[in-house]
Design a protein around this nucleic acid. Structure first.
Lengths: 373, 373
DNA sequence: CCGTATTACTAAATCGCATTACTAAATCGT
DNA sequence: ACGATTTAGTAATGCGATTTAGTAATACGG
C-alpha cells in the first residue's frame, strides 16, 4: 500500500513533461517508505536518530543525494527562526572596490551555509535609511555595510567595512590609515620627493576624512608642509578615473610645481596620470603617482600603478566572519568596536626617484607625449 | 476574557529586558479582539474584506502601524510559495564583466521588489550542478546564469546571459557575435590591416566558440586568411590580463609578423598590449589592438582601448526583466529562446592605420619602450 | 518469565501567514 | 413576513521542516 502511494508521487513527476518541482521531505519519506520524522532526524544527524541502523541511514542519504534533496530553507527558517541569510549594503556594485569586498564576503558566507542579499544605494539618503528595514523584513540575521554610513541600533549585528566610526553596536573593519599614509609618504620621501600633491576623496566616502588626517600626520612627521595649492578633492557621485583627472587638472592649474602625487584611490590615480601626461609630464620620470587600494587593474596600467594595497578581499572575508561570529554569540554579547587590517606598499612603475629639477608645465613641449604613452 | 489574554501577551513583551521580538498577526488580532483572518484580510486589502466596516479597518491599520507590524516574510513565502527572490549564478564576482551585469540585474530587480542571491562557482563542475538546487531550496522564483552552462530543466524560469545555447526552457541573452566580429575586423580592415592576430577565449567560457566562429566568418568575408601561427588561446581559470599577456607572447614567439590583434576581451587585450610593448612594439603605431566588452577601465588604459562594446549593464537589466516576465506569465507560457543585443564599436586609441611596412620584433631595439609607455 | 531497556521507528504540534469554507446576525425586496 | 442577500466576521487547513512525545517490537537481566 505504501508502495502504491510512493509510485504515484514519483511517477507524476517523472511522467510530466513539465520540469520537476523541488523534492521535499515528504517525497523522500514516501519514496523510502519511512516517515518524514525519521528522514529529517537522520539527515540532520540528530542524536535522537542514533538508534536508526546504518543501513537505513545510508538509504536515506543516498536517495537524498540522488534526488538533489535540499531542505526548504523557507520552511526551515520559519520553524527555526533562523534565515541563514545576511544583508550587504554597498554604494554600488562597481568594477573595483566593492567587487573585491563582495567576493571575500561571499567566499566565507557560502562556505558557512549562509546566503546574502546585496543592495546598492548609490549614496541616496532615503535608500540608506530604507534598505536596512527592507532587509530586516526579510529576516536577515546580520548586516554588512560596505563604505556606507550605516543605520544605528538595528536588532541584528552590524559590521561596517570602511564605515564611519563610532556607531553604537557596529563593528568596524578599517584599514590602518596611519600606517597606510606613512607608507605612501615614506616611499615618496625616500625617493627624494619633497613637493607632494594630494587628492582627497569625496565627502560622502567614509574613508575620506581619516585618510586625509593620516596623510597630514605622515606629511608633518617627515617635515613636509601641506600646501593648499597642491590639494584637490574628488567631486562626483560615481567613481571614475574622470574624477581624478579633473582634480589633477585643478592642481595643475594652480601652477605650483610638484614631483609626486598621492591619489585618494587607484581609480583616481589612473585619471591623475592621464591629466599629468596631457600636461606634458612623464610618469614616473617627472612626477611619481601613488594610488590606494590595489584594484586588479592597477597592476596592468601603464605604467603599472604603485599603490597602497588595501586587502579588500580579506576585509570582506573578515567582515563575513565577524558577522557570523556575532550572530553565533547572540545579540547581547560583547563585540569589538574596531578591527584593523594592514596596508601594504606595492611598488610598481608609477613612482621613481624625484627629478633633480622641479618640473614645470611651461618648460616642456606639452604635445610631446599626448595621446601616446 | 479576550482582554485578559491580550494583556498577558503584550505584558510579557514589555516586561522583558530582552529586545522585543517582532509583532505577529496573532498579537495584532488578540490585541484588537479580532481573528487573525480578519486582520490578514484587511491588511492585504483583500476584496473579501469589503464587508468589513471602515472603522474596524482603521483600527487594524493604526495598531499595525503603531506596533510596527511587518508580516513575516519567511512565513509568507512559505505559504504563498513566492519568495520575491531570484538566484544569480556567476563564475565569480570579478572586477569586470560580472560586476557590470550584476549591476544591471540589481537595478531592475530591486525596483520591482525582488531581491537576489549571488553564488559564484569558479567554474567548478560540482558547484555548477549543486548551486541551482541550493538556490531552489531557498525558493528562488527564477534563475539568471551569467556566463555559466546552466542546469537544464529547473522548475523555475532560467535566463542565461552569454550562456551556452540551445538548452531546453532557457532564454538566452547573447551578443550578436557576427555583428561584433564584423565590427572588429571591419574596423581594422578599413585601417589597412591585413595581418591580424587573434586571441581565443578559454574553452569553458560560453562565448568562446561562437565568437571564434563569427571572427572566422568576418575574416573570410574580407578575404583574410586565418593563420594558425597568428592565433593563441587563453589558458587559466581566473580571468586576468596575465592570460592575454601569455597568449600574445606565444603568438610573438611564433615569429609571424602582424599589424593588428583582436583579443578575446578587454582584460586580455590589456595583457596583450603589455606583451607587445615588452617585445618592442608601439601600440597603436606598430600594432593595433581591439578588445571586447568595454569594461570600465578600458577607457582609461593607456592607450585607451578600442573595443567592441558589449552592453553588459543592459544585458543584466534585460535578463532581470525577462526572468520577471517569465515568472509572471507562469512556467508553461511560451518564452523566447534567444534575445540578441547589439554590439557597438568604440574607437579609442589602441588602433591606428596599419604601418607601411610590417613591423618585426628584430628590427627594433626592444628596450626602448619597456617600462614606460 | 517478568519487567526494564533498547531499537526502530511514527503521530502530531508548531512556526506565521494566507486562504477556503463557513456562520450568525442584520437588512432587503416583494 | 419570509427567503435572499449583505454584513461582519470566524474556524480550519496547509505551506515544509523540526521537534516533542510517544509506540510497538524485540532483547536482556535476574
Amino acid at each position: 500500500m505504501p508502495g502504491k502511494k510512493k509510485m504515484r508521487t514519483r511517477r507524476a513527476k517523472l511522467d510530466s513533461t513539465q520540469p520537476t518541482t523541488a523534492v521535499n521531505l515528504k517525497d523522500l519519506a514516501e519514496t523510502l517508505g519511512l516517515s518524514s520524522t525519521t528522514v529529517s532526524l537522520v539527515l540532520n544527524h540528530s542524536p535522537i536518530a542514533n538508534s536508526i541502523p546504518a543501513r537505513t541511514k545510508r538509504r536515506i542519504f543516498s536517495l537524498a543525494k540522488k534526488l538533489h534533496y535540499h531542505p526548504n530553507f523557507v520552511a526551515r527558517s520559519l520553524r527555526a527562526k533562523r534565515s541563514y541569510t545576511i544583508g550587504v549594503m554597498v554604494p554600488e556594485v562597481s568594477e573595483g572596490y566593492e567587487a573585491m569586498v563582495l567576493s571575500g564576503i561571499e567566499d566565507f558566507l557560502l562556505q558557512e551555509g549562509y546566503f546574502y542579499f546585496v543592495v546598492s544605494h548609490r549614496h541616496r539618503r532615503d535608500l540608506i535609511e530604507e534598505y536596512p528595514h527592507l532587509l530586516l523584513a526579510r529576516s536577515i540575521e546580520g548586516l554588512i555595510a560596505v563604505d556606507t554610513p550605516c543605520g544605528r541600533n538595528l536588532p541584528v549585528p552590524v559590521v561596517a567595512v570602511s564605515g564611519h566610526r563610532e556607531v553604537e553596536r557596529v563593528t568596524n573593519i578599517v584599514l590602518d590609515h596611519d600606517k597606510a599614509a606613512a607608507l605612501a609618504v615614506g616611499h615618496l620621501f625616500d625617493l627624494g620627493h619633497r613637493k607632494i600633491a594630494l587628492i582627497k576623496g569625496q565627502s560622502f566616502s567614509s574613508d575620506t576624512e581619516v585618510r586625509w588626517a593620516s596623510l597630514r600626520l605622515a606629511m608633518s612627521a617627515r617635515g613636509l608642509p601641506l600646501e593648499t595649492l597642491l590639494t584637490a578633492q574628488l567631486e562626483g557621485d560615481t567613481p571614475s578615473p574622470q574624477l581624478g583627472y579633473l582634480a589633477t587638472k585643478k592642481i595643475l592649474a594652480a601652477g605650483l610645481s610638484f614631483t609626486a602625487l598621492i591619489a585618494f584611490n587607484d581609480v583616481s590615480a589612473i585619471g591623475a596620470i592621464r591629466a599629468l601626461r596631457e600636461a606634458g609630464f612623464r610618469v614616473p620620470e617627472d612626477v611619481s603617482v601613488v594610488g590606494f587600494d590595489d584594484i586588479q587593474s592597477a597592476a596592468f596600467q601603464n605604467p603599472a600603478l604603485t599603490t597602497i594595497r588595501q586587502p579588500l578581499w580579506e576585509m570582506g572575508q573578515l567582515a563575513a566572519e565577524t558577522v557570523l561570529r556575532r550572530i553565533a554569540k547572540g545579540a547581547s554579547a560583547p563585540y569589538s568596536r574596531t578591527l584593523m587590517v594592514e596596508p601594504k606598499l606595492v611598488v610598481r612603475e608609477s613612482t621613481a626617484p624625484a627629478p633633480r629639477e622641479l618640473p614645470t608645465v611651461s618648460e616642456r613641449p606639452s604635445a610631446a607625449l599626448v595621446g601616446n604613452g
